[in-house]
Design a protein around this nucleic acid. Structure first.
Lengths: 335, 335
DNA sequence: AATCGCCATGAAAACGTTTACGTTGGCGCG
DNA sequence: CGCGCCAACGTAAACGTTTTCATGGCGATT
């Protein structure tokens, strides 16, 4: 009926439950012969240790929780894939809670995970240091992804948006485009901020005389379209446009097409993220690739290390590189 | 140091642990006055019941497990989103285990979830009835997604691939295309099989004299490209091509473009799934949309009902409809 | 040959909760 | 006035493990 317990195995192998526990876990403290006998009995009875009982006594769940915002598309799946892969490699389970954008929802999610996880992976624009102090149980390890919090208490893992944006702007300028306009992302978004900073820095460094042209956007395709039309309405059209993410670049591309412009002949275009769509629009979009799987993997491993106590450093702020991928939309792929 | 237990609350409220348990859970068996006192004490101590202890005695985890293959992109994220939304609405947690394609890996995943979940959501091409009988603990409710198993023991939830494919073929024929070729999916894939069946049925019904042209594919973009070139090499080129999924349609589209053909003037094209890319290729791809979020949501609710025992029917085979979305690639959007 | 120590093993406590059961007291009804 | 019932509450067992401590046996050292 109900599955076999450690007692059943003990009885079947003529030993005490303690020996069964030893044989199944550490392996030390039992003869090779008895261990074999116990293992055989366990196998025969299809014994699987009761997870809850083990958690109760061990105070460890072998589970990590992932707190995610309402993500769309490839980013989400790639991130989860990376996390899941690394988790499985370490024998950890993954409890996900996604689609909560509000602070209250995030707080509820953290509370409900209380006691079910050994650590938390958090990716959320809304989460800041005060929130964590208020809602995170003390002693629960956490790793923050793409977050602006800089606290000694939590370790964060960011994509190197700044350097990536710098490199892209530099590429566009070196390709001969005299000026580069920038379509910004949401103001409260950390990634977006870093990318804009990169743009500004690169412009100052590599084209100090060119004007800084920045139009607002919010990472959606529509905002990209709006930005594109806004740029076209200007007296002098920029030679190149760099959008803070691919979706906006795509929206901008369609706006340009509609206006009868040829990309990249009339104006060069570049995005950020390298979402799959980037490859398939015409012309294919030059962009900055983020290795999302690696982001997830690194985050999990950092968290796991913290849990294991291997990494007792108060907090490490790590950064993951990204690379430029040149396609047709920037006009340097044919020359 | 360590968080408060039920004993601490009991002491603080001057009652026994039993009363605390009653006050926190059912609410019956305690005076309103004492319940309030207990709730206050719990609040003050920030008491959160220890999940593991509760699981141990209750034999319920309030968690459901999702077993997923190595999915890519939008499908994955939408599915998870649907599942997660429904789970949160019911106060259930979500334990995911993705990225395992092999049978052995799936078996290991099921085993490792043993005792940590109250039910399983399974989406996997490799999982069939014998596998389930061998690996699924008896009495653990499970809902299968997009699966071909027809067993009274498990309930399945499928997308209505057959009807969707039928409708698309009919649309292409009624648009005036005299014949429709089909790019098939992987042989062992249930969705692919149903779509092919739909194609065959619709052709027989609406164009009984037209030849059945079926070229193999495996759902990848490359295989779509191969199929496209194969179709072009034929003596008589088909007027329309229906690919069993969007990625193959995209591959096919690029093959046609490379050969100098104009889609949809020279040949019409349609896909299946409505992945985001479909909107962005040129011309935009006509396809069959699947409401993936609903798929996830329905699956979870069916599973939850089974767990609650609300739905004691041995197994229900439900089907989720899909709709045609007409864009430019099939040539009927302008006429 | 006696003693020491080590190693395998068993007994039992502990983890924090739910719940079946027992105990109290108050109150209605005969 | 006494009997019994019911509601509120407490006591303790139970869930299945891990782990500490005790115990026994056996080989080695003196």
């Amino acid at each position: 009926m109900t599955s076999a317990t450690i007692k059943d195995v003990a009885r079947a192998a003529n030993v005490s439950v303690a020996s069964v526990s030893r044989a199944m876990n550490g392996g030390s403290g039992v003869t090779a012969e008895t261990r074999q006998r116990i293992r055989a009995a366990a196998e025969r009875l299809q014994y699987i240790p009761h997870a809850a009982a083990r958690m109760l006594i061990t105070r460890r769940t072998r589970t990590i929780g992932a707190l995610l915002p309402d993500l769309y598309g490839e980013f989400f799946s790639e991130l989860i894939r990376g996390i899941d892969l690394a988790a499985r490699a370490r024998g950890l389970h993954l409890l996900v809670s996604s689609s909560h954008d509000g602070v209250a929802e995030a707080a509820a999610a953290v509370r409900s995970m209380q006691g079910r996880v050994d650590g938390l992976l958090i990716l959320s624009a809304r989460v800041d240091a005060p929130f964590l102090r208020a809602n995170l149980p003390v002693g629960l390890p956490a790793v923050l992804l793409n977050s602006s919090v800089e606290s000694a208490e939590y370790s964060v893992l960011n994509v190197d948006n700044y350097t990536g944006a710098c490199a892209m702007v530099r590429h566009l300028l070196e390709a001969g485009h005299s000026d580069v306009a920038f379509i910004a992302g949401p103001e409260n978004n950390f990634d977006a901020q870093q990318r804009e900073l990169g743009y500004r820095a690169a412009m100052k460094k590599y084209a100090p005389k060119a004007p800084l042209i920045i139009v607002p956007g919010d990472f959606t395709e529509e905002s990209g379209g709006r930005a594109g039309r806004e740029l076209l309405a200007r007296k002098v059209r920029p030679r190149a446009v760099f959008a803070a993410n691919d979706m906006m670049a795509v929206g901008c591309l369609y706006a340009f097409k509609e206006a009868g412009l040829d990309v990249p002949r009339d104006v060069a275009l570049a995005g950020f993220d390298d979402i799959p769509i980037a490859r398939y629009v015409t012309p294919a979009l030059t962009t900055v690739r983020v290795r999302i799987v690696d982001l997830g993997r690194s985050a999990l491993e950092q968290l796991a290390d913290r849990i294991e106590g291997v990494d007792p450093s108060p907090a490490s702020a790590q950064t993951l590189g990204c690379e430029i991928v040149v396609r047709d939309s920037c006009g340097t792929n044919f020359t």
